[in-house]
Design a protein around this nucleic acid. Structure first.
Lengths: 134, 134
DNA sequence: TGTTGATCTAGACCCGACTCTAGGTTCTAC
DNA sequence: GTAGAACCTAGAGTCGGGTCTAGATCAACA
């Protein structure tokens, strides 16, 4: 039932270094407990939380903001509004990222199409060269 | 017709520091020319390129990869395939980012909905608290 | 019993992408 | 002719997010 740091590293995809670092930074919901010999023990919930954490990180939430969230959750009931607000802010943040990426994608596809046409016509030199913009 | 570094900074949204840094890093398609007094002069094309550059950056392309692209373009005709490949790689990279973000969004919306239901029912303490996962 | 491997701590180091500083020159306006 | 803004170079500093090292302890197996 108990998991060692090595097992958690394997299953979460984070390095053992990163797990210790996250702990120092206060990113664990439950303070990580120790065996009598000083070794850390983790549980399934920690893995679940790390999975969410990783999603938040990879969607651009900073460790500082994750810590804010954790701090709110640790304080217990009474700040649900703040927690929701924080999540909603990130939600709209992610929506904006998606819109921006989609726009970039449009531009890139357009450029690539032009490139391809040039290549086909053997006008290779004029391929999207920043000094000779289309 | 000529633009000073300050004007380019204003219009590109990059700092003058960043512009000099980009130049050192070889990120300009055309080597930046100088006035006799040593001051840099830029042109509209540079702004166009910087706009694209900024899009590439903000969609996660590293400066190193942008430099690769520039290097290919500088070498002139003969490497169109490589240029296209580089662009296509980034294209699929961006597509993956979008998919990942969309997935994160799904998860977040689900969590937020659960939160909201709990708040409505006054069961505040159980709001997405990592130690009591839903 | 002794070596290998996992863990521990504290703290140094790294990387990308800037950002800023110091010290100097040049341009513009009054 | 002088103040102040804009520019120059070289190089140091910053920040986020880890990563790595040294030196010690501990566990497991042959």
């Amino acid at each position: 039932m108990d998991l060692s740091i090595g097992e958690v590293a394997q299953r979460s995809g984070l390095s053992v270094h990163a797990l210790r670092f996250y702990e120092r930074e206060g990113l664990f919901a439950n303070p990580v407990r120790r065996l009598s010999n000083g070794r850390r023990i983790y549980h399934e919930e920690d893995l679940e939380w790390l999975a969410i954490c990783t999603k938040l990180r990879s969607s651009g939430m900073s460790l500082a903001t994750i810590r804010q969230y954790i701090d709110l959750a640790r304080q217990g009931p009474g700040n649900e509004h703040e927690r929701l607000e924080l999540l909603r802010r990130h939600e709209s943040d992610v929506e904006k990222q998606i819109r921006d990426l989609q726009e970039t994608l449009q531009v890139m596809r357009y450029k690539v199409r032009i490139y391809e046409e040039h290549v086909v016509r053997g006008e290779a030199d004029r391929l999207w060269n920043p000094s000779r913009p289309e």
